[in-house]
Design a protein around this nucleic acid. Structure first.
Length: 298
DNA sequence: AAGGAACGCAACCGCCGGTGT
DNA sequence: CACACCGGCGGTTGCGTTCCT
């Protein structure tokens, strides 16, 4: 049993990449494009594992990589996304242009995870503390973390709201209009500009920030789809649902202060609890995310 | 100034799902 | 259907750098 290693480790360079290796890899990919990673080192004349080449390219050499510190906005987005998605770094990175999953993962493990954890613990010990604290205050005190930075904060920060820790890909979702399924989908929102594979144009709602969201009525009366027939939508959950929902004015909809578990629990259990007449009526966005397994299982 | 502790990040590892044969 | 390959993912490690005493 067991899988064969991706390549023979013998005679291969390991550790930090040299400038020369970077140059060879960059030029090769510029000419030949990405892909075929296993064969790439041989063809490019690199003494590296194909996986290593891929990682080096994706995390460091790609021209669209954004360098520099994580901005407060990015940081806030990471926190929000992590709250929703857990340690699904690639999905989180997908919402932060130019940032890599590895970078975000590292940033979380060394900064945010600890900070969030601290905020949590401090809020439980001092329950009367004010609801929000500024970033500047948090940055002022930056105690050094224990040496096991890499593993424990990420795990410890996986609060009860993290949906899944294992990555799952979802490029095609198949929804069967069964009554119990539809109940969860009723009045779900769908971002505009992403037509369904069935060609329907669904009506849109405007969020408070003007982003258009597509309402997705699912009751039998509202559906133009035969209840007996399945339909398939081609889309990427990470690209569509999260992006547009997060681009909408999230902060208006719910409070993602990690310190206030009570509020978050309510909000995350049922986003529909926040409604101002303009906001889409979420039955349960976390359940939508979490139901990916259910969708895929259909 | 020196040495140890802690940090930060690039790189590695093992596993998994998709796909082709 | 079974198998192998490939690409991608999250978790973990290693090591250079920075900070503290």
């Amino acid at each position: 049993m067991g899988r064969s290693p991706c390549c023979s480790k013998e005679g291969l360079n390991r550790g930090a990449w040299t400038v020369q290796e970077d140059k060879i890899l960059s030029e090769f990919i510029t000419v030949h494009g990405e892909g075929k990673w296993r064969n790439l080192p041989k063809r490019a004349g690199l003494k590296r594992c194909g996986k290593s080449c891929r990682l080096r390219w994706l995390n460091y050499l790609r021209p669209d990589i954004k360098r520099g510190n994580i901005s407060p906005d990015e940081e806030e987005l990471i926190v929000r996304l992590h709250k929703l998605l857990g340690n699904r770094w690639s999905l989180i990175a997908g919402r932060l242009p130019g940032r890599t999953d590895n970078e975000i993962k590292n940033y979380w493990n060394t900064n945010l995870g600890r900070r969030v954890e601290e905020r949590r613990s401090s809020s439980t010990t001092a329950q009367t503390s004010s609801k929000h604290s500024s970033h500047s205050n948090e940055n002022n005190s930056k105690p050094r973390a224990p040496t096991t930075v890499s593993s424990s904060p990420a795990k410890a920060s996986m609060g009860p709201y993290a949906i899944r820790t294992k990555a799952f890909r979802c490029s095609k979702v198949r929804i069967t209009p069964q009554s119990n399924t539809c109940e969860n989908f009723e009045d779900k929102v769908w971002p505009a500009g992403h037509p369904m594979a069935d060609g329907h144009n669904y009506p849109t709602n405007k969020t408070s920030t003007g982003n258009e969201l597509l309402s997705f009525p699912c009751g039998e009366d509202n559906m133009n789809i035969s209840p007996s027939s399945d339909f398939t939508m081609n889309f990427n959950v990470g690209d569509i649902c999260l992006s547009d929902l997060l681009n909408s004015d999230f902060s208006d909809m719910c409070d993602f202060n990690y310190g206030d578990d009570n509020i978050n629990e309510e909000v995350l259990q049922d986003w529909s609890s926040v409604s101002n007449g303009v906001q889409p009526n979420f039955q349960s966005f976390p359940s939508l995310l979490g139901s990916g397994e259910q969708w895929l299982g259909e």
